[in-house]
Structure formats: C-alpha cells, structure tokens
Design a binder for these strands. Structure first.
Lengths: 143, 143
DNA sequence: CTCAGTGCAAATATTTTGCACTATG
DNA sequence: CATAGTGCAAAATATTTGCACTGAG
C-alpha cells in the first residue's frame, strides 16, 4: 500500500500485510518498521541481526509475504543470499554497485519498448523480464 | 576456446581448462563432456546426479573454473540453485520459461544501444548488465 | 617423484518446517 | 477462546573446505 504525503511516497509495509488479511502482530510491526528505516537494500540475515528478539523464521516468513504481495523486490545476486528492497515504483530495474553492493532503482521507457520489439525474435510468449545494471557508484568512484 | 567446424561452433570446455593451466584429468574430461552433451542449461546438482562417480566437490570446483574463465554463464534464479549454460556467444541474454524452466539464449543490439542511452541517467559508471526475459516457451504453450 | 587434483566427510550458509506455546481479534 | 502467528530447534538445501590419498606430467 502506498500513501501520498506532500508528493512523497511513503510505503507502508505493515498496511500491505493487513490488506492481504494478515494480523497486526508485534513481530510484523518490528520487521516492517526496520525495513522502512533501512535506507538501502538488505538481506534476510541482516534483518535477523538487527531484530534479535524476532525469530529467524518469522523474519523469513514476513519477507516472503511482502515479496508475494509485491511490496518487496527479491534480487538474486551472483553469490550468496538474495537482496531485498522496497518496490517504490510499479515496474523498475536495479543498479548494483559491484564494489560496495549498494542497490539503486531506475525506470526507463526505452527498456519497455525494446521488450515489444523482442517479441518477434523470441520463440514463445513473453510474460516478464528482469534487468540489472552493474555499476561503480559515484561514492566508490570518489574513493 | 571455440573451434569452427562447418560454420558451427563447438565449444571445447576441456581445452578452456587446459588453456588456463589446469591438468587434463579424468574427472574434468567427464564433467566437461557431460556439460557439452547437455542440450539445455543445468544445475550443479543435476551434474552431480549424472556423474555419480565424480565427487560433488570436484563438480563444483570445475564449474567454478569454467565460470571464471567465461566459458559458462551462471544464472541466479529467484528460488533455488543457480542454472549454468555454455556461453556460446560473447555477450547475450537469457530467456527462461516460467513453466518448464528451460533456458534460451539471445542477443539483441537494441539492448546494447539502450545501455548507452542509460549512461546519462545513472549516477556512477556502468560496468555491465544482465537481462532475463521470462516466457512461456512454445513447447509449454502447445500443451 | 612431486604436487595438482580428487573424494569424502565435515563445516558453512541459507532457508524451511514441525511443533508446542502465545496472543490477536 | 479459537486459531493465526511465533520462537525454537531440527531438517532441508546448496555449497565450500580440510585433509589424506591418487595420478598426471
């Protein structure tokens, strides 16, 4: 669920969970608040470390609910555990810094147009796509 | 290493390993032959199942060498173990059937052109990208 | 012969599940 | 007060590593 405040979007993950019929429990309040306070993307492990009083299984279950509801993006990376980030816009792609691992979000209409032109080349029906741009972020470049 | 035969490309994974200074052992012969006889993409686990007389660790180590050498693509998927496929062309993208999991390869110049146009929008230096197209393949559509 | 490579089993990493207990609605 | 949700620990899954042994060069 997305609430408009002063033109800014505040994604309320807890409300998303309630919207799909789940109860408002203290564990879910803690997990969603922690995610919303995390500026960048995060791993399940990170969340468990930050919330030692919430059970590991509950953290994983809550993440799964949010991914299923489309409120979180699951971002499989080449090595190790997947990263998660709040899905702030409908459809988007990610930038991943190969130095520090920070994840950004972007949207580009050309990408969508390319998809349509690919339809003739591909044997089968296109149902979706995923794209990641690997970068060295400006912060790492500065160092 | 790539050998041209009648205009077809035969990628010789074993030669790739020798080229990076590794010995030609019976385990490596078995693993590379099995990969080359696999028409589609595969998981490490699949390879271990197909080669019960080769140690699990050796299968993983051989895969890692081939990925490092650029002869295999590692394709992280949303759930479960990553898939691998022979890198038949320099730079390409993948189609993944969401029904049967079969993986295809394609290359499209427009994608590369889009990358260049993205350079102005993105904060940092682009070093690479990855794109996957999710499809229902023609085989699954026919069913 | 030497040491790169192997197979095994144990360790590690990540995620899921069974189950008895708790607390939300 | 019924049962959805939790925490824990064990299981499941995926991969890596230590180590003694083997075999390629």
């Amino acid at each position: 669920m997305v609430v408009e405040i002063d033109g800014m979007q505040e994604s309320n993950l807890l409300t998303t969970l309630e919207d799909i019929g789940l109860r408002k429990t203290s564990a879910r309040v803690a997990v969603t608040a922690q995610i919303e306070n995390t500026s960048d993307s995060f791993t399940a492990e990170q969340l468990c470390r930050d919330l030692p009083y919430v059970g590991r299984a509950t953290v994983y279950r809550t993440i799964r609910h949010l991914v299923d509801a489309g409120a979180l993006c699951k971002l499989p990376i080449l090595d190790g555990a997947p990263m998660y980030s709040i899905a702030r816009v409908e459809h988007h792609h990610h930038t991943i810094c190969t130095k520090c691992g920070s994840v950004g979000e972007f949207r580009h209409t050309t990408v969508e147009r390319v998809m349509r032109s690919l339809e003739k080349e591909i044997d089968g029906r296109i149902t979706g796509h995923r794209m990641e741009i690997f970068i060295i972020c400006s912060k790492c470049l500065a160092e």
